Simulated scan of single mutants.
Amino acid sequence: MTGKNEDLRRNVLNELTWDPALDATHIGVAADNGVVTLTGHVATYAEKLAAEAAAKRVFGVRGIAEEIEVRPPYARKTKDDEIAERAVRILQWDVSVPADRITVKVEKGWVTLSGHVDWDYQRGAAAADIHKLSGVVGLINLIAVKPAIRTADVRKKIEDAFHRNAVLDAKEITVSAVDGTVTLSGRVRSWAERNAAERAAWSAAGVTDVEDRLAVG
């Protein structure tokens, strides 16, 4: 098993180094039976997220323990009120985000978003906007999805979407839906397949929450 662990660790390190979205100089990697631990520090929150995404792309990764710290390269940290002001402004500029329904709170560099939107992509777009801001060390996304339109056949629509998706092995995934909450269970071959299933589920009208219980491997 030691050899497999070392191969996986090396593959993750290579993927981190290859990714132009981050500087992996100060990131450490350990691997144990498919579980990868990322340590060290990066300059921005966006790089922290990029490192996690890069590790998930590596075949054989079944779980990730993410312990990377965000350490801005400049001595003077951005004040919370400055981050909050820029966060509000960037949300207002994004036409895909209903900024009037989102509240921003900043404490010690951690940004908390609350409020509600109609679609999950709007929730994701708001988070992506915050990822771009310097001085942010973490994000808590409490935005709720409250669709204006609900459909009775959510489960059928999601299953149809799975069958259309070339990435997914639909027969290995079970979908259940109660009101607007969708639960995915079964097994997928990779983190990419797991993410594709979750995105497809969120794309159905009427979905307010997705519980992803898919096993990887």
Rank of each mutant, 00 (worst) to 15 (best):
G109S: 08
P73C: 00
A75F: 07
D118P: 03
L91S: 07
P72T: 01
V104D: 10
A84N: 06
D81M: 04
T103F: 03
V111P: 08
P98I: 05
R89W: 09
D94S: 07
S114V: 01
K77M: 09
S96D: 15
D81T: 13
R86F: 03
R101Y: 09
W93C: 02
G115S: 06
E82I: 12
K108A: 15
E66M: 02
D81A: 10
P72R: 01
V95K: 14
E82W: 02
K79Q: 09
Q92V: 00
R89Q: 14
V70D: 09
L113W: 05
Q92N: 12
A75R: 13
W93G: 04
T78R: 14
W110V: 15
G109N: 10
V104F: 10
A84C: 05
V104S: 12
T112I: 04
D118C: 06
E107G: 05
E66F: 03
V106G: 09
E66H: 14
D81P: 00
E82Q: 12
D80R: 10
V106C: 08
R101F: 08
I68W: 06
V104C: 10
A99R: 09
I90V: 15
Q92Y: 11
E82V: 12
I83C: 02
E69D: 13
V106Q: 04
G115C: 01
R71K: 13
G115Q: 05
P98W: 11
V97S: 07
A65L: 08
R89V: 07
W110R: 12
K105N: 10
I102T: 07
V97D: 11
D100M: 07
K105H: 14
R71S: 02
T78E: 14
D80N: 11
L91P: 03
E69L: 03
A75D: 12
A87E: 04
K108S: 14
A87Y: 10
K105T: 11
R101D: 12
R89S: 12
K108C: 00
T112V: 09
K105A: 15
D100K: 14
T103Q: 14
A87L: 03
V111D: 08
A65Y: 01
V88L: 13
W110T: 12
V117A: 06
P73N: 06
R76A: 14
K77D: 02
G115T: 03
I90S: 09
D94F: 09
D94M: 06
K105I: 03
T112P: 01
W93S: 05
Q92I: 01
V106H: 08
I83N: 01
K77H: 11
W119M: 06
V117S: 09
K79E: 10
R76Y: 11
R89I: 01
L91R: 08
W119G: 00
R76L: 09
E69F: 00
A99M: 04
V95H: 05
V70A: 09
V104H: 07
I90Q: 03
I68P: 07
W110D: 03
Y74G: 06
A99P: 01
S114L: 02
K77F: 06
D81E: 15
P98D: 08
R101T: 10
T112D: 04
W110H: 09
V106D: 10
Q92S: 08
A99C: 15
P72D: 06
R76P: 00
V97N: 11
D118A: 13
S96Y: 06
H116L: 02
